[in-house]
Design a protein around this nucleic acid. Structure first.
Length: 288
DNA sequence: GACCAGGACCATT
DNA sequence: AATGGTCATGGT
């Protein structure tokens, strides 16, 4: 089985894979002290383990030069230089101290868009379950991993595949009112009316505007896709946790208006605001 | 059994 | 511009 070591330091694999960016990774370390995870990147099953000398990776079948994994993990980015751009205030210092090595991943755009269309008013554990249902029922099986037939991993279904389904079939995955939104997005992507690749060439504002034209995609989900799939580091998704972080950590006592809060979020956190947002999010979710 | 969840959207004030 | 209801579902 192909394997490699990514000699990366300052990388919290567990925190990163469990910080609500991706929904298909499961811990597989039993009682071992090392943090070990299994997931799917594209059409490959990957097993990752965090050790002293870096992240150990193995995948059945062919791994090529592993660039696809370095890209997904963003293991070559200089985290320290990003942290330097964070505002020098008490909330950020606390969040950074509490989430050492937290990274922002780089996902496939369709997987990211589909996942976050399904994320609306759902807890992360439930998003995981919905995405798992969707992959198990309609994703392409990944062959060569048949430990047991019922555990055959599946890729996330393509836009074309989902576009060929019915709303009733999608609802069987327990995604509720999100089903028509996912179906509509899949049809537009599969039919070529919506070009996910073209977003790469656009400005942040234009790309966000495009995404928000999709039913079920507002500012928050649009920002998640731009940050997690396209690397627009200025995107600053504000969900209930981040809003709580802003109000509690930056405006205790006062009650800033929604508009004022959005202005603060858009101007205070610098060129890598998206990273700062992820630190605040994970900090709020894991403290206490 | 309430309450809430990585929201978006539409109808009222 | 700011609230309020609605949409499904299940964990805590």
């Amino acid at each position: 089985m192909p394997e490699t070591i990514l000699p990366v330091r300052d990388y919290d694999l567990a925190g990163t894979l469990d910080s609500g960016q991706v929904f298909r990774w499961t811990r597989s370390d039993g009682d071992s002290p090392a943090s070990s995870w299994t997931g799917v990147v594209g059409d490959r099953v990957v097993h990752l383990t965090q050790r002293e000398d870096g992240i150990h990776a193995e995948t059945p079948g062919s791994a090529g030069n592993w660039d696809w994994l370095r890209h997904f993990l963003q293991s070559d980015v200089d985290l320290a230089s990003i942290l330097k751009t964070f505002p020098d205030d008490e909330p950020m210092r606390r969040a950074v101290a509490a989430c050492r090595g937290l990274r922002v991943l780089r996902q496939d755009p369709w997987e990211c868009l589909a996942s976050f269309i399904l994320s609306s008013t759902k807890q992360i554990v439930q998003i995981r379950q919905i995405v798992a249902n969707l992959c198990d029922c309609f994703g392409e099986p990944i062959i060569g991993n048949a430990r047991r037939p019922c555990l055959t991993p599946h890729a996330l279904p393509s836009a074309e595949k989902i576009a060929s389904l019915t709303e009733v079939q999608l609802r069987s995955c327990k995604m509720g009112f999100r089903a028509p939104n996912l179906l509509a997005a899949a049809r537009q992507v599969a039919g070529g009316q919506f070009d996910l690749e073209r977003l790469r060439t656009m400005s942040y504002a234009d790309a966000l505007h495009q995404l928000m034209a999709l039913r079920g995609v507002g500012k928050k989900i649009g920002d998640c896709v731009l940050l997690f799939a396209y690397g627009f580091d200025s995107a600053f998704p504000v969900d209930v946790w981040v809003e709580r972080a802003l109000r509690e950590l930056y405006f205790p006592k006062r009650r800033p208006s929604e508009k004022k809060l959005r202005h603060f979020a858009a101007t205070h956190f610098g060129p890598h605001a998206g990273y700062a947002q992820q630190y605040l999010f994970h900090y709020m979710r894991t403290k206490r």
